[in-house]
């Protein structure tokens, strides 16, 4: 979901920029005085810069509303399931691997040896959440599975020669 939005947004802006570069390259064949160009386009730049600044502030405010490492507010009487995850070369120790749909889960992720990445993939092999697993520290991921199925954990930080084989499964019923 987020991936698609990101991909399309990037593509649109990249194509836009490429188009501008192309137009300017085509227009470069003409030859005009520089002074008037500077004057005109400096003015345009002020406008364009202002729009960018507003865009940046807007997008920042929008995307920072819900940052994933803020602990969600649980409703009265609802206790999250706390799952301890320990990564090691090359595997996972996960205290609990079966969950129910709608059950709030907190993964407390750490590592025995080197840095690893704890990435949760859904049934369609799309990442839905991740955090770093690092020695001496515990990172947290908050998640509530919406759909039943088998989820996979892959390592998302290069950790040695069997990095790509560090797989674990979670089952959501």
């Amino acid at each position: 979901m987020v991936q698609m939005v990101a991909w399309i947004t990037s593509l649109v802006f990249m194509l836009l920029i490429a188009a501008v570069f192309l137009v300017v390259a085509i227009k470069s064949k003409e030859k005009r005085e520089y002074e008037p160009i500077v004057k005109k386009w400096y003015k345009a730049r002020t406008f364009y810069g202002a729009i960018l600044v507003i865009l940046i502030i807007g997008v920042s405010l929008y995307t920072l509303r819900l940052i994933p490492f803020n602990q969600p507010v649980y409703s009265e009487g609802e206790e999250p399931t706390i799952v301890d995850v320990e990564a090691f070369q090359f595997g996972w120790n996960i205290t609990e691997t079966e969950f129910k749909v709608g059950e709030p889960v907190e993964f407390h992720v750490t590592s025995q040896d080197v840095n690893h990445g704890f990435g949760i993939y859904d049934e369609d092999m799309e990442i839905i959440a991740q955090t770093q697993a690092m020695p001496d520290y515990t990172n947290k991921v908050y998640i509530t599975f919406d759909e039943p199925g088998t989820y996979e954990i892959l390592c998302l930080e290069y950790c040695g020669l069997a990095h790509h084989q560090m797989v674990a499964e979670l089952v959501v019923k």
Binding site: P68, Q130, L156
Partner: peptide, 12 residues
């Protein structure tokens, strides 16, 4: 670099 996007795209 948006944290919400990074949450699913970091290290991909």
């Amino acid at each position: 670099s948006a944290i919400v996007v990074n949450h699913v795209m970091h290290n991909t």
